[in-house]
Design a protein around this nucleic acid. Structure first.
Length: 564
RNA sequence: CGGGAUGUAGCGCAGCUCGGCUAGCGCGCCUGCCUUGGGCGCAGGAGGUCCCGGGUUCAAAUCCCGGCAUCCCGACCA
């Protein structure tokens, strides 16, 4: 492709709205332009990348037996009401104003609708159906360029199985395909166990890359490779101890002590003797949650135990139900409460907790003797530096960008839409589904986040929009021009993707800066300096290393590099 | 949806407190000359509803009220 004739608007300056490197560089490299909040046009270079990514995805999806669909973005609202997800998505789903239609944020419903009409027998299963298409979500706050948009490309696939073992197989096939896809895209990623959230279903894993710009938080162990979304992450912290003798409960005056840290300082005592209380409402029942010391409650773990409808109490409700304000609540003397505790407190005694009376705490509480604990659960949030649950090395807590998410859905959608098949015994059963997504633009943005320097993007060989950036340095010198032109032709004949900077009105420095910004892995530089000796310079974008070789050997050099 | 910031030429910004504008600067763009190994140089030129609507005033980019948009933090994120 000739730069003199093609539309590739690069920017010297950083657009002020872009803060993270991938967003800045995608704008500067002429890949995208904003149209509205979270809505981007892809210009030719950007779309070339999109197509590269889609090619890799198609390849690996087809390899596991996936069949590509093209599904409508416009969906009847009614279909979404049948599964209850019109309500579940709420304002996140776009609704068309002048017809009862919605813009699909994902496609379980449509897939299930097709399956319902055509999958009749266990002999029709299993199936893997996928699509790579635009999805629409009315994100309350789009951000970070294409990483969170209101309109974005997603590869979504859906497995349909007759048995739960079949679902496991389909799920594992996807996990393997995803590893291949992200590896081929040149990404350093990790896989975490995740919460399946409101999507429903049993197992779920996320494919993540570590990035400060990430919206998810994960605990990772560099030693053994343990990694988990903080929503579900665990660590190997020590428990509160049970001492030999349980002393009698005593009330202590603790004026103006509101937080665990204040209590710790006030009493000069270790955190493991303190029990913090939080109160949630599950339907009509208040639930007191005991956490050790200043451990942070992990709400997603809690909701996994209590159900998604549970909610924290308002301060006035708290006072009415316990008789005290937050900071003085405790497990003793409550009526009508369910009490649960973090595993770390299991069986502990001689604890200090709130007295349900402002400015007072109780000491020597024995959870076995004094409290009717209805269950110990892991409910704490992992902190950086805590020991890894598998190898005890310190965990890091990092931000991460979610590239892909795989779910075992089960029969939720088949049940709602009555998508049944007949098994070997002629018995009607719901189709068992899995759902597997990949953010297409995120692969591009994440690659840039992981691979750039102060001069611009550094593409990996597999993802790069062109293999070679051919730079004609002296466009006023006919000899140089003819060498560059003939190289351009030879590259094309050899099926090497080449971006050719043949502009005559641009200074050499400008071309070099553009080449570094655009980030093709190899720069082939045709300039007077070397051509006069029959030589060409090849610069490796990633390392900056330069090789000088004879003109006749350039194409072969690039071919070798491509094969390596 | 809460908190904060910003909105002036294609991009990056100044001017706004303290009203006086014929609205500047750098980059980019156009024309001509020049230059050709790291975002050249010189000369000339085009380009603006100062986000929108209302108000105050002799006079508003500037002050006041209302809206919209974009970005950031938080909430949210199947």
């Amino acid at each position: 492709m000739r730069l003199s004739k093609n539309f590739l608007p690069t920017l010297k300056e950083v657009p002020s709205d872009a803060l993270i490197p991938s967003h800045q560089l995608m704008l500067r490299a002429g890949m995208i332009r904003p149209l509205g909040a979270g809505v981007y046009s892809f210009l030719p270079l950007g779309y070339r990348l999109v197509k590269k990514v889609m090619e890799i995805i198609r390849d690996e999806m087809d390899a596991i037996g996936g069949q590509e669909f093209h599904l409508p973005a416009l969906n009847p609202l009614e279909l979404w009401e049948e599964t209850g997800r019109a309500k579940a998505f709420g304002d996140t789903m776009f609704h068309v104003k002048n017809r009862p239609l919605v813009l699909a944020p994902t496609h379980e419903e449509v897939i299930c609708f097709i399956a319902k009409n055509h999958i009749k027998s266990y002999r029709d299963l299993p199936q893997i159906w996928y699509q790579i298409q635009t999805k629409f979500r009315n994100e309350p706050r789009p951000r970070s360029g294409v990483i969170r948009g209101r309109q974005f490309l997603m590869k979504d696939s859906y497995s349909l199985d007759a048995t739960w073992d079949g679902l496991d197989t389909s799920y594992d096939l996807h996990a393997e395909a995803y590893k291949k896809i992200f590896t081929r895209a040149g990404l350093k990623f990790f896989i975490v166990g995740a919460s399946s959230g409101a999507m429903g279903g049993s197992a779920s894993q996320e494919f993540m890359i570590e990035s400060e710009a990430g919206e998810d938080t994960c605990a990772v162990c560099d030693q053994c490779g343990y990694a988990a979304n903080l929503e579900v992450a665990a660590s190997h912290v020590t428990n509160a101890l049970r001492e030999g003798e349980s002393k009698p409960i005593e009330e202590i005056h603790t004026p103006n002590v509101k937080t665990i840290d204040e209590l710790k300082t006030f009493l000069h005592i270790e955190e493991r003797f303190l029990a913090k209380s939080l109160v949630y409402m599950k339907e009509k029942t208040p639930v007191l949650i005991l956490m050790m010391g200043n451990d942070q409650l992990n709400e997603s773990k809690l909701l996994g135990i209590l159900g998604n409808e549970a909610r924290p109490l308002q301060p006035d409700e708290l006072k009415a139900l316990t008789g005290a304000d937050g900071g003085s609540i405790g497990p003793i003397g409550l009526n009508g409460f369910t009490i649960i505790a973090d595993k770390r407190l299991e069986g502990a005694n001689n604890l200090i907790s709130g007295a349900n009376k402002n400015d007072y705490h109780l000491k020597n509480i024995d959870l076995q003797r004094d409290v009717n604990i209805q269950g110990y659960h892991d409910m704490r949030t992992v902190q950086p530096g805590e020991p890894c649950p598998t190898c005890n090395q310190p965990l890091r807590v990092v931000n991460a960008i979610e590239l892909g998410h795989i779910f075992k859905l089960g029969t939720k959608y088949a049940d709602a839409l009555h998508a049944y098949y007949l098994d070997e015994n002629g018995k009607e059963r719901p189709i068992i589904m899995g759902s597997y997504g990949i953010g297409v633009e995120r692969i591009i943005a994440c690659h840039i986040e992981q691979s750039h320097d102060k001069n611009g993007i550094v593409w990996s060989k597999s993802l790069s929009p062109f293999h070679v950036h051919l730079v004609l340095v002296n466009s006023n010198n006919e000899k140089i021009v003819s060498v560059a032109e003939s190289l351009y032709e030879k590259f094309q004949e050899s099926l090497i993707d080449v971006l050719y900077d043949d502009r005559s009105d641009v200074s050499p420095g400008f071309k070099f800066k553009d080449a570094d910004l655009l980030g093709m892995p190899l720069q082939v530089i045709v300039g007077e300096k070397n051509v006069s000796n029959g030589k060409i310079e090849i610069k490796d974008r990633a390392t900056g290393k330069r090789d000088i070789l004879e003109i006749g050997k350039v194409v072969n050099y690039v071919e070798k590099w491509l094969e390596s």
